[in-house]
Nucleic acid binder design. Structure first.
Lengths: 112, 112
DNA sequence: AAAACCACTATCCTTTAGGATACCACACCA
DNA sequence: TGGTGTGGTATCCTAAAGGATAGTGGTTTT
């Protein structure tokens, strides 16, 4: 890692990994991609997530301007921001490579 | 997450995250992108990594067919496979989004 | 023959992500 | 007025990733 440019790129990669990595953030973004949702609605949709974690992840995503939180007196609505939507094509590309990767791994069981 | 297709995609994303995420795997791939290297050469190039971790990560990357290990009597050479190189454009796309993301985050310090 | 380099392995420890469980304040509904 | 739903907090715990430090067996170098 003498190469400065590569180090900067690695930092960028780490930032993105941090955003869509982890156990839940991808699932939350995917769920909100469908439509804006309320807290408990997200909780039900995602499944096994505990409220503590959901709160934490939502705060993280909000801080990163990927989702927005709008509260009226009685309920709270989370939705993707423009910036959040801009992740969509990137995730598409990742999914594509991931599929190819699985093929590579599963093919030729061990034709080393 | 009722949506089956999205669940499959999430699994793909997780797989990819697992490969390029983590503290070191990105750095190892980046270093080998430059040219094939020997164990201690990688160690020096990457910097603070301990041999235990480097061994572990190299094994992981080899299992995933992203790098190959060639040993002659006296030394060992690690290099990217074709499959490993195929990650390059994806990482390029991730870096791009990451740069845009940093701009979004740093812009308008808090014009909420 | 000794020192240094190579590619590791072994043991132990710390940090962190994430989970389990319980609880809280508020509103609304019957 | 008590139960139900909403949007969370608080406290504690576990597991897994990763780090520190030391050592090993071979080779090559001087």
């Amino acid at each position: 890692m003498k190469n400065k440019k590569k180090q900067v790129q690695l930092r960028d990669v780490q930032d993105v990994i941090d955003i869509i990595g982890g156990r839940w953030r991808g699932a939350i973004l995917a769920s909100l991609c469908d439509k804006p949702k309320r807290f408990n609605e997200l909780k039900r949709d995602i499944g096994d997530i505990t409220p503590r974690i959901l709160t934490k992840e939502l705060k993280y995503l909000e801080m990163n301007k990927l989702i927005s939180r709008k509260a009226d007196t009685t309920s709270v609505l989370y939705s993707l921001t423009e910036h959040g939507y801009s992740l969509d094509p990137l995730i598409g590309a990742i999914v594509q490579w991931g599929q190819k990767h699985r093929e590579v791994i599963l093919a030729e069981p061990s034709l080393a």
